[in-house]
Write a protein that binds this DNA or RNA. Structure first.
Lengths: 202, 202, 202, 202
DNA sequence: TATGAATGAGATTTCATTCAT
DNA sequence: AATGAATGAAATCTCATTCAT
């Protein structure tokens, strides 16, 4: 992990996740992150441009792994239906596996500057593009309603999953998240499905 | 508007929306809000406990009006389908009418403390309850699939709408928002609908 | 009581003593005193020039009564020894009777501006003059050592009593104060007494 | 001087004494002290927890030196009488040598919170203990009247010296302070002395 | 590379006092 | 005389970032 060099880079990223999850965004000073990472304050600035950069890099790193992982899994799937299911299930199960990360991405990271949010959105684009490609494929194969705007579909899919995760985080991870994939998938499939060219009379 | 006392209370709330929309939450000093409202800095503290309280009250006020307005409109509707449509359309059109407010609720408000977010969630409950009641009614009338968990449905509905609005805000309100109600509604209805007891035998 | 007019004047003074004793000098806002006195904030300024003036007047009022009372008692005494005893005993017993007032004069009032302390000293002069007159009388009557500077004697007398009272206040009035008069008096008398023109042999 | 680290710590303490003496406690902003010390405002907080802590530390430092110095001098003395004289004389002469410090300890320090005053009292205990030990020794050696309560004696001694110093400060250091040690000592000795087992018959 | 002491800008909130009613 | 809503100046402390070592 870590396209930039060195074990310290990764250490700092991981320290940031932990510190932010534990203390909340607004109480996560650079010095605290440095301490947790076992480096001097100044060292942070050898690896990151500024505090914002830690956050964005954090998101980039984690999101990169996340997207790559899901992409790999989706390759195995054959039907569009399965692909969507895998996406939803992976999204939920990946975050369920790492409470700290979930807390940071769903709640804490959103407390940052608008400018960070725009950059985070930039990073998200890889993932949103993945969703788009599934939708487009579904449309082309006649599985999904071609009349629904792809962007709208994607917003619904992402917005739904995101809201489900956020609710889970705000309820303190008190229930199992991944199992919700099934009914969420069922719902979204039904909504997305192309109108039944039913009664196709022969 | 304004269940608490006086014209100054409302003036400050409105000034806060404007200032926060223009400058972003983190650059919206109390003194700036006071100036915009045409009152002294200290006057703010006669009406609000602290800066946080301005934010929460702002949300309470605006959300209260918002929910009441939608509730009223929904009463007129007869079918569940219409009720859901009205909710979605109102949600979108209300926020489309007030760019500043949309900016504040979709982006700026979420930059605040977790503690504020929980209070905001508290306020949101009225609205989420409204969604729940539509879902329940739909289930009872056999319109919606009784197998889908109400909470899940609500998260999908709210999450979808919210994501659509946020995208619109982040795209700088560059397209019309309300018209999206139609396809969003269509999608959600399809997803929610009870399985067709098809093949109705003659 | 109250050389200035009106019951409100007295009410405010008494409220100030109570509020300061209860909340400490730095947490005794004018508005709190006004509330305790049952008047509006603005009313305070009809009777007192400013907050400082409340404090000084408070001290004047209470000190005036205090000094007059002691002066009266001392008139009854015949010997210098008795006069000093009465002064010490009255000083201690008067303050013991009013814990709030003791707290205010010994601790809280000293937290104020230097300028107030100078004015308080001005007010104290009446009392210090009383001590001086006892000393002078004692010297003239050959009771006290004429070689000791009167001002020094007065400082010792006042400083001793004051320190004893302050210690009692800081120890939360946990022991009886007035009984200490005896040994304090004994000590001071011994120190003040003129050198024994002992055994002057005939 | 300075049990805590470094030259900056001492610089800040000394700057605080000067600034407070010149401007009074309530007009001694942290930034003023920082400027006088030649450091940045923030640097203050690397050495002191908060503004209060500067005051307490200041008193601790100066008082520590003061007490150690007096203790050392007293060791040289043989008689109790001399010890008391040295204590009084050192107390007066030490403060006379540093007008700023005297102003701060006698007047400004007492304007602070009650909480500070309690901490100041804590620091004073070392000095008061020293007085106590002289008294106890005097009692044991039959020099001082064993019937007088040690605490009372100590309050008289400390209260007298303190009052003498405070008067000198409030009179703007317009006369020499140390010379007063003699008559103060004479007075206190007389008051403390054990009753003369006079008339020793031949 | 790494350190960590030092920097200094910046904002919330309090509260004595005023003055229109 | 009395009110109390409104004023607005003023100061502590935090923390991201730098730079000499």
């Amino acid at each position: 992990m870590g396209k930039k060099r060195g074990q310290k880079y990764d250490k700092i990223i991981d320290a940031a996740v932990k510190v932010i999850a534990e203390n909340g965004y607004h109480h996560s000073q650079v010095s605290k992150i440095a301490k947790e990472a076992g480096v001097a304050d100044g060292t942070i600035y050898l690896y990151f441009k500024n505090k914002e950069d830690i956050l964005i890099s954090l998101f980039e790193e984690k999101m990169g792994v996340f997207v790559d992982y899901i992409k790999g899994k989706i390759l195995d799937a054959t039907s569009i239906e399965d692909k969507l299911y895998i996406l939803i299930h992976m999204h939920l199960s990946q975050l369920e596996k790492d409470h700290d990360l979930a807390l940071v991405t769903q709640l804490e990271l959103r407390q940052s500057n608008i400018s960070i949010r725009f950059k985070v959105n930039e990073v998200l684009k890889g993932y949103l593009g993945l969703i788009d490609s599934i939708i487009e494929e579904g449309k082309q194969e006649g599985e999904f309603d071609p009349d629904i705007d792809t962007r709208m579909m994607r917003q619904v899919i992402f917005g739904s999953i995101d809201e489900v995760v956020t609710n889970w985080v705000m309820k303190d991870h008190r229930y199992d998240l991944a199992p919700l994939a099934e009914s969420l998938h069922k719902f979204l499939m039904k909504g997305l499905k192309a109108p039944q060219r039913m009664e196709e009379p022969r």
